[in-house]
Design a protein around this nucleic acid. Structure first.
Length: 474
RNA sequence: GGUCUCAUCGUCUAACGGUUAGGACACCAGGUUUUCAUCCUGGCAAUCGGAGUUCGAUUCUCCGUGAGAUCACCA
């Protein structure tokens, strides 16, 4: 097994959406598949105090945990390279910045922000790219910490291999004198993530596509610092389903935790995210988390962006619900039952749950598909009118079918099998098609859009309830 | 504008240079002598365009076209 130290390094600027979570998932899968030789680090990059949102760290941790992503090292867990919160590591960055100053690879930026802005405007007006290094001061002042500290870059073309994208290259114009330490004393992402990855011994850096054009800067900095470059893997975007833009909070990307509240299973979400841009080359669609860990590989990750298709997630969720044992399903369903259902107790809830398990797409379907087992449903006759077949029946026909049904069921033993026999006999005596007669019975006892097999539904409801509901309808 | 990336059914994707271009979601039609959003069967539907290399190109090369990213004292 190869040694893998991978990390997820979000900034605490709000909730997590599917794009960010997928990056974390892939990184985690890589570490877990290395077995005991794999470590997954959660590092929080809080160097932009302006954009920071309170509570984000907790939310990030909750999101990862919900998905089943557990980290080995992090701010709450500690680890050999603690602290894992960048704002607590400022001395480390200062140290490395000093090394760059000493080796002549960093200098104080003497300009005001307005002056730099003027340079940028000028370049724009002249239709040429803006490069700070064109304005590199001849005799920069000694850096006292109040000015930004800039990297003295060594522009040159680069060719490198990305574990996902393959061979990549850029010209020298991609490299400029970027800021290492801001005037507020905090390092920039560009600088501190490189330092941290190196001293934390990170072997695999996974990140999303927008970083591809900054990679040459990073390569240049690795060289200046004398660090070995880790394996770089660029993940394609997750796109909004109806847009051509990457999925972002502005385009309706949801907090990943909301999916849990909406009745999605974390393993379905993991399956969905993993197969959004990755597949194992076979026709397998449903993967358990264990299978994902076993089979995931960076070289089968797609190069092109994938759209976020909620329909597919819904389908996968139904598939994963079916995979659950009844006890497991029950344990996860607790938040979704109606009050009446909870009053009925665990035994009865499980009886009903077993009946409906195959039909659930989300746990949030539980009330709509089970409430009539616990509470008297309000008749919705429009459901009869909206049913193509039932709409044709006259009021008299409906009445006579229901009366016949009541009579027949009153004589039934009311286990699933005898109800089945009773219903079959009923078809013969009424001469009606099952699609019509059974639809009618189903609606009258449940008034629900969908329900389990009729004989089982009736049996679980019990004779008295069924007769009462038929009477009520009559 | 500079730099860079990507491109197979509507969507997610498969295909050592040789397949009737496969699967899944969605959709449509049947079936399950019982409803239904389950399940089964079937159907619809794709290699962005043009050159080149080759006996043969979805696959390799080039040129277009389209889409996207980036060019911050944000990450």
């Amino acid at each position: 097994m190869t040694i893998v130290r991978s990390r997820f390094a979000p900034s605490p600027t709000g909730f997590m959406h599917v794009g960010g979570v997928r990056t974390a998932l892939f990184s985690w899968l890589l570490a877990r598949q290395a077995g005991t030789d794999g470590t997954f680090i959660l590092r929080i990059e809080d160097t932009d105090k302006v954009r920071e949102v309170e509570g984000s760290i907790q939310q990030i941790e909750n999101s990862l945990r919900w998905l089943g992503i557990e980290w080995d090292e992090g701010i709450d867990k500690g680890g050999p390279d603690a602290p894992y919160l960048q704002s607590e590591r400022l001395v480390i960055y200062k140290e490395w910045a000093q090394k760059l100053i000493d080796s002549g690879r960093a200098y104080a930026d003497p300009y005001t922000q307005e002056e730099v802005e003027a340079f940028r405007e000028q370049a724009k007006a002249e239709k040429r790219p803006f490069l700070f290094r064109d304005h590199r001061p001849e005799n920069p002042p000694v850096w006292d910490g109040s000015q930004p500290l800039r990297f003295k870059s060594d522009p040159k073309p680069y060719k490198w291999t990305d574990a996902v994208m393959g061979e990549l290259s850029t010209g020298p114009d991609a490299i400029d004198d970027f800021v290492l330490i801001k005037s507020d004393g905090f390092p920039t992402y560009n600088f501190c993530h490189i330092v941290d990855d190196a001293i934390m011994g990170v072997t695999h850096v996974l990140r999303s596509q927008e970083f591809i054009s900054s990679t040459p800067k990073f390569l240049n900095l690795y060289e200046a610092l004398g660090f070995e470059k880790p394996t770089l893997a660029t993940l394609p975007y997750v796109m909004a389903i109806d847009g051509k833009k990457k999925l972002g909070k502005r385009d309706g990307a949801k907090d990943i935790l909301l999916y849990g509240a909406e009745g999605y299973l974390p393993e379905a979400m993991a399956n969905f995210l993993a197969t959004l841009g990755w597949n194992d080359g076979t026709e397998q669609e449903i993967f358990t988390v264990a299978e994902l860990i076993e089979k995931f590989s960076l070289d089968r990750v797609q190069k092109s962006p994938a759209r976020f298709d909620e329909q597919r997630l819904l389908w996968l969720n139904g598939q994963h619900i079916r995979l659950l044992s009844l006890d497991d399903l029950y344990a996860r369903s607790l938040d979704f039952w109606s009050e009446k259902a909870k009053e009925a107790g665990e035994e009865r809830q499980k009886l009903v749950l077993a009946l409906v398990q195959d039909r659930l797409k989300t746990l949030a379907d539980i009330p709509t598909i089970t409430d009539y087992f616990f509470d008297e449903p309000a008749p919705k006759w429009e459901m009869v009118a909206e049913n193509k077949q039932l709409a044709k029946l006259s009021k008299e026909e409906i009445t006579s079918y229901l009366e016949a049904t009541r009579t027949a069921l009153e004589a039934s033993e009311f286990d699933a099998e005898s109800i089945q026999n009773t219903l079959n006999t009923l078809l013969e005596t009424t001469g009606q098609k099952p699609g019509i007669l059974f639809s009618l019975i189903r609606l009258v006892v449940s008034w629900a859009p969908f329900s389990p097999a009729l004989n089982e539904t009736l049996s679980v409801l019990g004779k008295q309830t069924v007769i009462d509901r038929i009477n009520r309808a009559l």
